[in-house]
Design a binder for these strands. Structure first.
Lengths: 227, 227
DNA sequence: TAGATTGTTAATCGATTAACAATC
DNA sequence: TAGATTGTTAATCGATTAACAATC
């Protein structure tokens, strides 16, 4: 046994990545009026091995009851607490292009610990407009506003060749965590948290698998025009 | 030694995910006129351990020359071939909302094995419009066109509660690979490739780290208004 | 040559999977 | 009670990291 197993630290990244999916199922279960759930059932809904579900839930520090399962509301509370989704971090987004607009319109960020309060852009024609109710401000104002409002999270949705400059700006202004959507390796001081979402990584997996499939069974690739 | 180490199969997913970043650096090196590169140098640019770079490059089947390094163009060719980025797969996108529009506008998909040729949407007001030069067609036409054109890749950019229905439609129409941007677990026949990009997973990592940081050193979270 | 860089082989680390006794 | 489900401990698997001889 570890000295303190109620510590919220040391949870494996793969487990953290699965937590949002657990949460979303737990909310559904709650709506269905169910108060408890077993690892087996949760696993079926998410196509995960029940043993893995149990291991993941173990990280919450909660104990389930044999033959019964886990308390749905308690699991929700515990997971939200671990992820920090029981509070809301204000965030600034830089880059009011297509991707930026999509992020501003994302539905459930506020329930996931993130409140994008404003967007910033260099382009004069975008400045002053509103996207999904969020004002687009001139990039110049980023540093000042970040400091004044104590904003801790920055989101980068600019082209790859501008990303590092924006990151530097954010760090300089005191941002603690950067959610980066540009496919670049950002250089930041080690105390700054960076989470990069790189679409090309996922695309690489997809196209590689497809290439293997098409190479192995070329027939499968060619579909007949009329069934 | 394995029976055949020139097989393109069996490359670890983490390596595949890193390949696009290697590629992008390799292109930059090429532009800079460099013909060879060492693992050390590549590693520095991407903040990766040189040993890991070597292991990754080993997967290409290429051999480098001691004291010199690897041939840049050969590496590019090999990695593109493994990822299937030396050919282009036509893809249909479903969901012409914010996210869909962002994907339609993504700059380098065509150089990454993916050509989104059309978008589909249920909403009559969107149908007929053009987004980034791509026509938005009625969802009804998806199945028919997929079969007729032999399109093999489908992209799902609809809200979570519609995703499974769209996936079913795609599978029925003969789609072989699905790039899914809805945060749901899709049920598809096992021969269909699914790659889900779930923003909430990444967000979970970010907010959890931030929560830990703020809990450990609360002072760091509060910045002074005037440095 | 000497030294940088390689490919290979072994050690470490961490997550998943399996096995099983405990319990409601 | 019997059986489902739990938590825990051990085995497996896979990726990263380390060590080192080979080579240009």
């Amino acid at each position: 046994m570890s000295p303190r197993n109620d510590e919220p630290r040391g949870i494996p990244a793969p487990t953290l990545r699965r937590f949002p999916a657990y949460l979303s199922q737990l909310f559904r279960l709650q709506e269905e009026g169910r108060d408890v759930v077993s690892s087996t059932h949760l696993g079926k809904r998410l196509m995960l091995d029940p043993v893995q579900v149990r291991k993941d839930l173990e990280c919450t520090g909660l104990v389930g009851r044999p033959k019964v399962g886990h308390s749905v509301p308690k699991l929700i509370e515990a997971i939200e607490s671990i992820l920090g989704w029981n509070r809301v971090n204000e965030a600034f987004l830089v880059g009011a292009g297509n991707l930026g607009a999509a992020l501003l319109g994302y539905p459930r960020f506020k329930q996931s610990g993130l409140d994008i309060v404003a967007a910033f852009d260099e382009a004069p024609e975008k400045v002053g407009s509103e996207i999904h109710g969020k004002t687009v401000l001139p990039l110049k104002k980023l540093a000042n506003l970040t400091r004044r409002m104590g904003v801790k999270v920055g989101i980068i949705a600019v082209p790859a060749d501008h990303a590092q400059a924006v990151a530097d700006l954010m760090v300089e202004a005191g941002i603690l965590a950067i959610w980066n959507f540009a496919p670049v390796t950002l250089r930041v001081p080690e105390e700054v948290i960076v989470q990069t979402e790189d679409l090309y990584s996922g695309l690489a997996i997809l196209t590689q698998k497809l290439a293997v499939r098409l190479r192995e069974e070329p027939s499968k690739g060619v579909r007949h025009a009329h069934e």
